[in-house]
Structures are given as C-alpha cells and as structure tokens.
C-alpha cells in the first residue's frame, strides 16, 4: 500500500465530461437506484448493502456498477435536482442503468480504467476525476495539504 499523500493516476474512458474532485466513497457492492438509495439525502438504503446508511452526496462514488430496478436513472436524476448527487462516478461494469444514470446525473464519469479502481481507491482518499481526458488521480489518505493536485497530473503530464 502506498504512503499517505502519494498519488496514483488511472487512465480510462470518460463518459460524461467535466472535472471534479472530492473524497472517495468506495464499495464493492453494486448499487440499486430505485429502492436502493434515498435521493433527497443521497443515502444508500438497501438493507444488506455495505454502505447502508451512508451518503454519497458531494463525494466521488467508486463502485462496481448499477443493479436492480429500472428506476436507477430516475433516482439519481432526482438526487441531482435535490442537490444530493455524487460529485463524480467511477465504475467498472457498463449496463443501460449506469449509462443512462451518469447521463442524467450530469457529473463527470469514468469507466474502463487501466487498474481496478476498487483495488486502488479507498474510502477517504482524495480523488480528482478529469472525465474530459479519462483520468483519475488518487491521493492517499485525504485532501492534499498543499491545495489541489498539480494540474499536470490531471492532464496526464502534457504541457
């Protein structure tokens, strides 16, 4: 495991553009939208989910993908309008629920990363998502002391 403050860059496919940074909330359980989240507070409510009771509001949600009811997009759409959406989404498995979900949530989203984000990112890490360039920069152990992650890390070191 890398030391606190060190950074790791992952490369993948940006789906919905934009840049966002924040604290990671990581789960190995897929997420249900309808019946799995409460959109007003952005809270996971599925009773057997490892994040049951926790909120993804203003955090970078890192998860395997979407499961369950077709109401997935509708619930995340509602969380955006209620101001409780995650800041960005990083996931592994594509399906129609997550595809439509990231489109209507309108936050930066990245998939197909070159390392498994569930192995690399831990809850509490500081994560910058640059979905325009398909980049994810992970800073171990929380927000870097000296402001934001250097810009060159976000655009892959290009000048």
């Amino acid at each position: 495991m890398t030391a606190t403050g060190s950074t790791i860059t992952l490369h993948g496919r940006g789906l919905v553009g934009g840049v966002a940074e924040g604290e990671a909330l990581v789960t190995r359980d897929s997420i249900s939208g309808w019946g799995g989240i409460e959109p007003t507070g952005g809270r996971i409510i599925e009773s057997r989910h490892e994040l049951a009771g926790q909120s993804f509001r203003d955090r970078i949600l890192v998860f395997p993908g979407a499961k369950g009811s077709s109401g997935w997009s509708g619930m995340f759409h509602m969380s955006r309008l209620a101001g409780s959406a995650p800041k960005a989404m990083i996931f592994n498995y594509m399906n129609t629920k997550i595809a439509l979900g990231v489109v209507v949530t309108r936050v930066p989203a990245v998939t197909d990363l070159d390392q498994d984000p569930l192995d690399v990112i831990e809850t509490g890490d500081w994560v910058c998502v640059d979905a325009d360039n398909g980049l994810v920069v992970v800073t171990r152990g929380g927000r870097p002391q000296t402001g934001a992650v250097p810009r060159q890390r976000l655009d892959g070191g290009k000048p």
Binding site: S70, G71, W72, S73, G74, H77, N95, T96, K97, L100, G101, V103, V104
Partner: peptide
C-alpha cells in the same frame, strides 16, 4: 429489450 430508464 434492455432495461431502459424513465428518460430513455
């Protein structure tokens, strides 16, 4: 069919 959502 896939599982569509409200918007699609």
């Amino acid at each position: 069919t896939n599982v569509e959502g409200r918007e699609s």
